[in-house]
């Protein structure tokens, strides 16, 4: 089944109306919000966007850029994470920036990530773990993920503790 149809069907089962038009508009708003970063430098930000998009690329569901992950990482870097974590993040981004990561073709970007994940190659597995956390948190808690990836059920109203997974076509509720 077409994924949009599946989502629409399951959303209607739970009383949440999601029209394709609404989705498209929401995605468009976020995608064009390519404002300059507030805390990271422009070149660090390009690396962030490129990395995040390789980790969670647009497919039949929106990708990291669609979901505003680069902006989230920028704000988190600027306002929320500890000075130690900021240094760590910035050092790794600087390394990837020097390497020209954001200008590489996608397959080479994927190879680079794979190398970091499986060897001691800079910026290191710890850095990648931190970056993955920022990316995944920014993505899977976003409005875009809630409304076009998960089943979004803000006011469930009741509890069914033993419901066939088929009832949601195998999709999880947004938590």
């Amino acid at each position: 089944m077409n994924r949009r149809e599946a989502l629409k069907r399951t959303a209607l089962l739970f009383g949440v109306a999601v029209s394709p038009g609404t989705l498209t508009r929401a995605l468009a708003e976020l995608a064009t919000d390519s404002a300059a970063p507030r805390y990271l430098t422009p070149s660090q930000y390009k690396v962030v966007a490129a990395m995040a998009e390789r980790l969670l690329p647009a497919s039949d569901t929106p990708g990291a850029i669609d979901a505003g992950v680069p902006q989230f990482i920028d704000v988190t870097y600027g306002l929320f994470i500890s000075p130690a974590d900021r240094n760590k993040l910035r050092t790794g981004l600087a390394h990837l920036d020097r390497m020209g990561f954001d200008a590489l073709p996608a397959p080479e970007q994927d190879d680079t990530i794979h190398t970091i994940a499986t060897t001691d190659e800079a910026p290191g597995k710890d850095w990648l773990r931190q970056f993955r956390w920022l990316t995944f948190n920014g993505y899977f808690t976003s409005a875009v993920a809630a409304k076009s990836g998960f089943i979004w059920d803000p006011i469930p109203g009741g509890y069914d503790g033993c419901m066939p997974l088929a009832k949601t076509d195998g999709i999880a509720f947004f938590e």
Partner: peptide
């Protein structure tokens, strides 16, 4: 760490 991309994303939308 070594797993990323569209397949992983699709999996993580499932319980």
């Amino acid at each position: 760490l070594a797993r990323f991309g569209a397949d992983l994303k699709a999996d993580l939308f499932k319980p």
